[in-house]
Design a protein around this nucleic acid. Structure first.
Lengths: 307, 307
DNA sequence: CCTGAGGCTAAGCTGAGCTTAGCCTGATGC
DNA sequence: GCATCAGGCTAAGCTCAGCTTAGCCTCAGG
């Protein structure tokens, strides 16, 4: 057994703390250990080295000269290892932020935005939670949608929305009149306040007696899927549905004007805890991305710049 | 939990060895551990730090860049602690040498000799074993006594012996004739080949019809104790019994000439292991002390120089 | 004298650290 | 292509280092 091969790093750590504090009890408090455990560790180290490191008085300790000679090397070496580990590995720790959003947001607009955000912030990872799923996680940030008019002036307002009609690129030339439009199956989303009836009324006036081939589906992404299969037309919300529409090869039908809607997206976060820097950074990134989307209209890629 | 607070010194030691060997198996061999244990320790360290330190191929490992960045600090720090502990504490390690000797040697001649030896060699401690005790220890060195004539030329011969009569100082003047001598009780030691009968025959010729007040005891120290109590006379072996006789206040009776005996002390050690430097040093010290004793005759202190 | 701080020892519990066994992959030799 | 060897991995089981609590002792202070 070699004297120099000290079995436990913790022996050294305890020795250093006891020497610094000149007290086993205070060392134990710093290291979250009982004083008895500190005493035993020091004794183990002393037994291993064959020399006392501390002189004991009834309820006090004093560093021996040998203990004093050993201490600087121990302190320097423990410090070197710890600071090196800190600089090499602690910096690599990922800061996770959880974001809750609707399915359309999660599937359409957010993937690109979050990918860009994570690329620009390697130490931050966004866990995206979709509304309606069963996951019981308390999100750091939520993207909400509301139709109350005052939301336009909400401090964390993100973006408004416009209604457009999404069709396949090859169907664009076939829609030149209202009759052409009504020859298609028209997909409505169950949860949306504004559907085909309202949209047509708004743009073409009341249409009593006109038969609409309405079909109801549960979500916007699903309706757009149907359109991409050549099964009909659907209402899209820009700029949110832009990316997914583009991915599906859909374009805005030019026959129907772009119609501003009453809805607004905004950000919300828990009131019970302070905002972390990473959460704030994500918030700003979302707002910048939304602003950019609003500015270029966020139409499907194939319609504008090949992006 | 802080990344920098690494729980185990052994993790670092294993990491360093694996990195140096580029192999868990060879590191395990060096550290007397199984490769599986090495693997688990490295994995524990990697899990703690949150990053891999080694890339694994099917049956090979390669240090990662992070592992490579960490290694020099670990090596330097482990090295600093170990070399400091070595220089501070290993030098203080006592090298224990076990010496087996007779009770007379152990009680009389050896105490002073060994005390001087230990004073001159602070890193060596002699554990003295007495013949006849129950201790089951394998001695590094044995002082043996033998009466074969060829022992004088033994390579580790220590000293010869002379027979003298030990008496109290105040009894010296009372012993001027053989009759005076025979008026005392004469203590024989059971295990000695040479006793009072042989000694008197040798110095005064055969004494048929002379009644000797012989008394037998087990050991020489005991016979000398009796003499010091005024209970009689005993035969002493010089130079061995010099110190104990002096301690008891005894002197050599000048009426009986000093009689060379056939016995010799010599050193013996186990053949099954190499001689350690400390054992060799003790051997030389014993021979020097014996030589010095033979030169000055090693009579009781009170008889010569007050020492 | 009493109380509190602090070190020590003993006894008991727990999980870190080790071993063995068996599986897998890659390299090498026949 | 097959067999063998080297070496890393995982799982399961055993052991003892490391911890806690309890109780004792000494010293200092009120």
């Amino acid at each position: 057994m070699r004297i120099a091969k000290i079995p436990s790093l913790n022996w050294l750590r305890v020795f250093e703390a006891a020497a610094r504090h000149q007290s086993f009890a205070r060392a134990g408090k710093e290291l979250s250990m009982s004083a008895a455990a500190v005493s035993q560790q020091i004794l183990a180290l002393e037994t291993h080295l064959g020399r006392p490191l501390f002189e004991r008085a009834a309820n006090r300790i004093n560093l021996t000269s040998e203990g004093g000679d050993f201490l600087p090397t121990v302190q320097a070496s423990l410090g070197a290892i710890e600071s090196k580990a800190e600089s090499l590995f602690a910096r690599q720790r990922i800061d996770r932020v959880t974001l809750l959003a609707s399915q359309l947001m999660a599937m359409s607009w957010l993937p690109r935005v979050l990918a860009d955000f994570e690329a620009a912030n390697p130490a931050i990872r966004v866990d995206l939670l979709v509304e309606g799923t069963q996951r019981k996680v308390d999100p750091d940030l939520v993207i909400r949608f509301g139709e109350e008019p005052h939301l336009v002036r909400h401090p964390t307002w993100l973006m408004g929305m416009s209604h457009v009609v999404m069709c396949r690129k090859e169907d664009t030339a076939r829609i030149g009149s209202l009759e052409d439009l009504l020859s298609f199956r028209l997909y409505d989303v169950a949860s949306h306040a504004i559907g085909w009836t309202a949209l047509l009324n708004h743009n073409f006036g009341p249409q009593p007696g006109r038969h609409l081939k309405l079909e109801t589906v549960d979500t916007t992404p699903l309706s757009l899927m149907m359109v991409s299969q050549g099964l009909g037309l659907a209402i899209g919300h820009l700029p949110v549905c832009g990316p997914i529409a583009a991915a599906l090869g859909l374009v805005v039908c030019p026959f129907v004007p772009r119609t501003p809607g009453p809805g607004n997206y905004y950000l919300e976060q828990p009131q019970d805890r302070p905002q972390r820097p990473s959460v704030g950074r994500l918030e700003r990134a979302l707002q910048e991305a939304a602003h950019a989307s609003m500015r270029i209209g966020a139409q499907p890629a194939g319609a504008e710049d090949g992006r």
